[in-house]
Amino acid sequence: MTARRGRRAAGKRRGAPRKWRGKPWKPWAVCGTALLLELLLIWSPLRPYAAGVLILALLGFVLWWLWRTDRMARDRDRAWREEEAVRRGRRSLARADVMTGTEFEELVAGLCRRDGCTDVRRVGGAGDTGVDVTGRLPDGRTMIIQCKRYAPGRAVAGRDLRDLLGSRVHFGADLAICVTTARFSRPAQDFAAANGIATLHRDHMGLWNRGAALGSLLGVSGGGQGDGRHRVRWKKTYGEA
């Protein structure tokens, strides 16, 4: 009891109650507001002016609140876009390398939708006639996609692209695309170039997965595999088939 009384006495000697400590302006603000209201009640000629001031203050507060809300929403949207760009930039094909064939087909279908393709459907499975994804490009052309989730050291053979060419005729598609996490053999690359089949090898797939648009990659279809020296470096990097 003695100690408690001592603390109370010390608090009184220190001055302001605990809730006002560190914020000396609060008592003055409360007192000033009370005094202003008392003057307005006593001196009636000031009431119209005070009402105008209060209305303007209220309008200013509403405008400030709307501006602040809009700024906060824009800041949150900007932060989300920056974070998404960072996540997209950090994506790699390491995730695709451990996917099943079905998961890789879903990834390709999702990238098509991201780039504005419509009517995108995954049709891979038993009896898919060499087609895993169908859809329509943003320019209206119909497309079929064959997905080859191979180990990086493997190569897509020419027979796979011959099957894809037959599927393009079967579906009546405007464009046939073969996407792989590996590379294309020389016969497969030559066959694709001769028959208008778009080929996206591992390097292109990595660019697509990191944000490049499908339309921009179709313009470099089949390129980037280089000569024999490039293929030697590829094998050193990814290993033999």
Rank of each mutant, 00 (worst) to 15 (best):
V108M: 11
L56N: 09
G158K: 14
L63H: 07
A194K: 08
I144P: 08
T118A: 07
S92W: 12
L107M: 15
G222T: 07
W65D: 02
M1N: 04
G110H: 07
G211H: 02
R13G: 00
R8E: 09
I177N: 03
V156T: 12
G166I: 10
R121T: 13
D115S: 01
L54G: 06
W43R: 05
R231M: 08
V62T: 00
R21I: 05
V98A: 12
R5E: 12
A29V: 08
G89P: 06
L218G: 02
D190H: 11
R231N: 11
A16I: 01
R154D: 12
R8N: 07
I197M: 08
L54H: 05
R95A: 14
E38P: 04
L40K: 07
C178D: 15
I197P: 05
R95P: 09
F191R: 13
A10I: 04
P24H: 08
L218I: 03
G172R: 09
L40D: 08
T2P: 05
A9V: 01
L58Q: 09
E103F: 04
A79D: 00
A198V: 02
G11V: 00
G125R: 05
D139C: 01
L200C: 04
R202P: 03
C112L: 11
D203F: 11
Y49T: 13
D119F: 06
A34M: 07
F184Y: 14
W28R: 14
A241S: 14
R95S: 13
G140M: 00
R88D: 14
T199Q: 05
C178V: 15
E38H: 11
D174C: 01
L46A: 08
V169Q: 10
R4F: 05
G140F: 03
A51N: 13
G219E: 15
A57N: 09
R68K: 01
D115Q: 01
E84M: 06
L165K: 15
G222Q: 08
G116E: 01
G6T: 11
A188N: 14
D160L: 15
R233I: 12
D227K: 10
K12P: 00
K26Q: 15
V179R: 01
A173R: 00
P17T: 02
L41R: 07
L111G: 06
P17K: 03
G127F: 02
A155Y: 14
G110A: 12
A213Y: 01
G196D: 00
R88F: 10
